[in-house]
Amino acid sequence: MDIPVKKSKRKNGYSDHLKAALFLSPTWLLLLIFFIGPMLLTLIFSFTNLALTGVEASHLRFVGFENFARMFQDPEFRTSVWNTIIFVFFSAVVGQCFFGFLIAFLMKKKNPMFRRIVGLIIIAAWVTPEVVVSFCWVAFLGDSGTANWLIGLFGVEPVAWLFSFPMVSVVIANIWRGTAFSMMVFQSALDDIPKEVEEAAIMDGATRFQVTRFITIPMVKGTIATNMMLVTLQTLGVFTLIYTMTGGGPGVSTSTLPVFMYKQAFVSYQLGYGTAISLVLLVLGAGASLLYMKTLKVKV
């Protein structure tokens, strides 16, 4: 009598798995079409001479690692990698993560109405379209912009910010726009810390700095790692802000990898070379994520 029961359970198990597979099939299909498929095509095209114009446009062929060899011999590529590292480090790690945590920490015990007002002001920049933010900062930093008007009040001569300090300009603009995300993430994590833990430490004689260093920060370490990864990956892909403000210039002074990739793929029409650059960008993002997890010793 035991054997039929086991077969029945096994059949029910197969039936449940089949139903689950049928329900998930639309999701897998969408992932295949819009995620896995494009990734595979990118990988394939990076080893070809794919182009939109010229003789190569009608003669697609496999070129092996030729695109990558050309890339690492290109001085502009090396400059773009360095610009990307600078932009991501100061804009994402130092800027958005630090100021996001600082704002969230300062608003932790403030009046709820005050927190809402400050939060709405900061979030307004985040929800504004990136191209609009870019034009706002171009107007702010222009020759006759607000920045020069403000320093003019102190007798300082106008500065061509986008020409003299292009990287500083795009870094500040991206910090201004993206800090809200980190603020919301850290605000949620800080609100989940039990008040009793901090109060007990203060009663034992710990200073506010010691409580922050040895209790608050370790308790949100996982959130810090997650936020750093998300903000870094998001900043690695920033294109519209930089391209609208400076076009990657003057020269190549703000040409990050997304800007360099765009110019090679859609200005020079070398799609094979452009997709090879995108793979390097993918590797940089994966490497940064692994570095955060190893350094902060958390599993995300």
Rank of each mutant, 00 (worst) to 15 (best):
L102R: 13
D191K: 13
P4A: 12
G222T: 10
R70K: 10
M203F: 06
M113T: 12
L150M: 08
T79F: 01
Q73W: 09
T128Q: 11
G178V: 03
W149P: 10
F99V: 02
F135P: 13
F101E: 02
K110D: 13
T275I: 10
T146F: 12
K108G: 15
E199Y: 07
A225G: 04
A173F: 01
V300Y: 01
W82M: 00
I117D: 05
L52H: 08
Y262K: 01
F165H: 08
S134H: 04
G152T: 13
L257S: 00
F34D: 09
P218N: 07
A276I: 00
V131D: 05
D204I: 07
F140T: 15
G37W: 10
F135M: 14
T42V: 07
V185C: 12
P250M: 15
T275R: 03
D2Q: 05
I3A: 09
F68I: 06
P258N: 06
P158T: 11
V131K: 02
D74P: 01
Q73V: 00
K299P: 00
P129R: 02
P258S: 04
C97P: 06
G119I: 05
A160H: 11
Q210W: 06
C136M: 11
Q270I: 05
S91D: 13
F47Y: 12
T226Q: 08
